[in-house]
C-alpha cells in the first residue's frame, strides 16, 4: 500500500529530533485522532536554515513529516508557504487515499511553525499564512 519512497522516509526519517534554538515551532493534529506533528525551524534572514520534526502517528505521518522538512529546508519562508500537501504526497510517489490527510497535516505543520515565527515578532500571521493554526478538528 505504501510506495518505496514512503517506506524509505519511514525507515530513515530525515531531520527527526529536537531543535533547541528554534525560533518557529508549530504543532498540529490531535492525539485523539492518532497523529500529531511538531515542526521546529530556525529561520534566518527569511530562510529556513534548519528544521526538525517529531511525529506521533502512522507510517505515512512520519514519512510526510520527513519529506516536508526536506522540501522546506534551505528555502525561503515564502517558498515554504507555497508548499502544498499534494506536492508532499507527489514527492513521496503518492499516498494511499486514506492517508492523504497525513500530507495535509504536514502542510499545516509547516504553516503553523511559520505562524509562530511571525507571532514571536509581533506580526499577525493570518494575512500571510492564513488560518490553519489551532483548528481543533479531526481532519
Amino acid at each position: 500500500m505504501y510506495s518505496e519512497k514512503v517506506m524509505d522516509h519511514f525507515s530513515n526519517p530525515r531531520n527527526v529530533g529536537e531543535l533547541p534554538d528554534a525560533n518557529a515551532v508549530g504543532k498540529v493534529g490531535n492525539p485523539k485522532c492518532g497523529d500529531i506533528m511538531k515542526m521546529m525551524m530556525r529561520i534566518e534572514n527569511d530562510v529556513i536554515a534548519d528544521v526538525k520534526f517529531k511525529t506521533f502517528g502512522c507510517g505515512a505521518a512520519v514519512a510526510t513529516s520527513s519529506m516536508a522538512t526536506e522540501l522546506v529546508k534551505g528555502r525561503t519562508v515564502t517558498e515554504a508557504l507555497a508548499l502544498t500537501n499534494k506536492a508532499v504526497a507527489e514527492a513521496l510517489d503518492g499516498l494511499p487515499p486514506v492517508k492523504m490527510h497525513c500530507s495535509v497535516l504536514a502542510e499545516e505543520a509547516i504553516k503553523s511553525a511559520i505562524s509562530d515565527y511571525y507571532l514571536r515578532q509581533g506580526i499577525d500571521p493570518v494575512p500571510i499564512v492564513g488560518c490553519n493554526v489551532d483548528c481543533e478538528h479531526c481532519h
Partner: peptide, 14 residues
C-alpha cells in the same frame, strides 16, 4: 503509550 500502532507494525516489518 505515546506511540502509534501502525508505525509499530511497519517498524516491525523492517
Amino acid at each position: 503509550e505515546a506511540v502509534e500502532g501502525e508505525s509499530l507494525v511497519l517498524g516491525l516489518d523492517m
